[in-house]
């Protein structure tokens, strides 16, 4: 079953008829995801990819019973799209859009306070429960089913980690790309917590990067609550201070933002920290075998 999404999830796509929305909706449908419709204001009543198009998220949810929305809306309009989805009470909104202004995300975060909708992202690859449901832009075939949960700030590094885990003889329950922006809907700690409470996840890979305090917060929670082995990696050990490394959130500001500081805290909290990103899979396999034995 995994976490957040599974074979029973019904997905609607915001920005359905745009080029990104179209391409990735096709990919999701091919994977077997139950995409039940989409939203493009002004195109309501038409069909796209053999599925109904609606003018509003409210209509789409009412007609299709969707519980998950994925957002491919351009950055200038994405905050509005996320809030529109959250207003309908869908359980999950996955925002793929990269480049949403910080001021917009401050308002989104405020809007979501006290609402039951969970946001993943923005600027993320999405969520995939292996073999069941892909709500994102990741290459589905990499994520072979198994018992390892992955939480990561980055896209291709998530694929890399999943690939290594699979090649090491394990598989993936759910992979969650939480996004690399300064303000995101679901934190590393929250994702880890979901995996700890999931009966089908037996081990966790936690991938972070320089900037912010999400990994330290997650590590402290793990120390207090861990019942499952965690392998951790922080990208950006060689990144210089003050330079933004691609992601808007990936910038070393203070002493606690550095990869070294984060890795130290994670080690102290009992996480199996790897220095080389090439060793994520093999370390997970080693740790899992130890647990089994």
């Amino acid at each position: 079953m995994g976490v957040l999404v599974n074979k029973n999830s019904k997905i609607i796509v915001q920005g359905f008829t745009g080029s990104e929305g179209t391409f990735h909706s096709q990919q999701m449908i091919e994977y077997g995801t139950s995409v039940v419709g989409g939203i493009t204001p002004g195109k309501g009543g038409t069909k796209h990819l053999d599925r109904p198009v609606f003018n509003t998220v409210e209509q789409a949810v009412k007609e299709t019973g969707a519980d998950v929305s994925i957002v491919f809306v351009p950055p200038a309009f994405a905050a509005d799209a996320i809030m529109e989805a959250a207003d309908t009470g869908v359980a999950l909104v996955v925002a793929i859009t990269e480049g949403i202004p910080i001021r917009d995300m401050i308002m989104v975060r405020e809007f979501l306070r006290g609402k039951k909708t969970r946001l993943i992202g923005p600027n993320c690859p999405g969520v995939i429960t292996a073999g069941e449901c892909k709500v994102g832009i990741m290459p589905g075939f990499v994520f072979q089913p198994g018992t390892i949960g992955i939480v990561s700030k980055s896209g291709t590094l998530t694929y890399e980690a999943a690939d290594q885990v699979v090649k090491a003889g394990l598989g993936i329950s759910t992979a969650i790309g939480i996004g690399g922006d300064p303000i995101i809907g679901t934190t590393t700690k929250e994702a880890v917590e979901l995996f700890m409470n999931d009966s089908e996840t037996e081990g966790i890979v936690m991938i972070g990067e320089i900037g912010g305090t999400l990994e330290a917060e997650a590590a402290r929670w793990i120390k207090a609550n861990s019942r499952k082995p965690v392998v951790g990696f922080i990208a950006g050990q060689t990144a210089p201070a003050g330079r933004r490394m691609g992601h808007a959130g990936a910038i070393v500001g203070g002493a606690e933002d550095t990869a070294a500081a984060k890795m130290k805290i994670m080690r102290e909290c009992g996480i199996n920290v790897v220095e080389s990103p090439a060793e994520i899979g093999s370390t997970m396999a080693r740790v899992m075998n130890k647990v089994v034995a």
């Binding site: 896209g155 950006g236 050990q237 990936a250």
Partner: peptide, 29 residues
């Protein structure tokens, strides 16, 4: 292209910001 110049001797070309940082780390190791 998202490029930041650094002072080392091994250039790298990667897809994705996280993997790019991880690749820099690999080079160092």
């Amino acid at each position: 292209l998202n490029y930041v110049k650094l002072d080392g001797n091994v250039g790298c070309m990667v897809n994705g910001a996280g993997l790019a940082m991880a690749t820099m780390d690999i080079i160092k190791l």
